[in-house]
């Protein structure tokens, strides 16, 4: 089994921005998602199938009794033959999809944190050269929030098209558009490093962790 992969789309991935969209006051998650879909369709976006991003959490067991680090294993339906493993505060690898089998074999070192599985499912929309994914984030079968991923497919450098992207997101998310994802800002080459698939997954992971910590808004659970 090869852990490191050289699939074409990994080296040539375009710039993605993932952000959380607040659920409208007193409305359900589904209602807010419907409103977003409607806005996108009014702009002339075309629905193109669906997508899914999931994340499993593992505890690294250690003998010394120190607080253990976490390992996140993620899948993205955009790259169905691959699996991403992100080590908390450390390296990440892109591996074959059967990396999951390896994790089972390694269960003496990494323990699956049951009930920590996060899933994000939703629809894909295409508008000109943009790809927009509106997803509902679910943790232990309760909807916890909404994600919006926007990808500007022709551009590989985040710093090149961030302003353009912001203008686009404002056109359907309104003025409350997020700042440039921190994953890009913390790279040594700065904004002008080429985007990678891991950047997208890191953004999803940050969003998942943020939602996990937030209180369950009672009225929003569906």
């Amino acid at each position: 089994m090869s852990l490191m992969r050289s699939e074409l789309h990994f080296s040539n991935v375009s710039f993605c921005s993932v952000c959380q969209v607040p659920v409208a006051e007193g409305k359900s998650v589904q209602h807010t998602v419907d409103v977003l879909h409607k806005k996108l369709e009014q702009m002339g976006s075309v629905k193109q199938g669906s997508f899914c991003v999931d994340c499993e959490t593992y505890h690294a067991t250690n003998v010394s009794g120190q607080p253990s680090k976490l390992l996140y294993v993620m899948h993205n339906s955009e790259t169905p033959r691959s699996c991403m493993a992100l080590y908390e505060g450390g390296p990440c690898i892109v591996a074959d999809a059967n990396f999951d089998v390896l994790m089972v074999k390694l269960k003496s070192h990494f323990q699956n944190a049951k009930g920590h599985k996060v899933e994000c499912r939703g629809s894909r929309y295409r508008y000109c050269d943009f790809l927009i994914k509106v997803g509902t984030v679910t943790m232990s079968s309760s909807a916890r929030g909404i994600s919006v991923e926007v990808e500007y497919c022709p551009c590989v450098v985040p710093g090149d098209c961030w302003n353009l992207m912001k203008e686009f997101m404002q056109s359907f998310l309104g003025p409350s558009v997020p700042e440039l994802p921190s994953v890009f800002a913390t790279k040594p080459e700065g904004l002008f490093a080429q985007a990678e698939i891991v950047d997208t997954m890191t953004q999803y992971l940050e969003l998942f962790n943020k939602l996990r910590k937030s209180q369950i808004p009672g009225s929003n659970v569906r």
Binding site: Y127, C128, D129, F130, C161, N163, L164, E167, F168, S171
Partner: peptide, 9 residues
């Protein structure tokens, strides 16, 4: 003065 028009720069 805008970046996009009909989705194009």
């Amino acid at each position: 003065g805008r970046f996009l028009q009909d989705g194009l720069p």
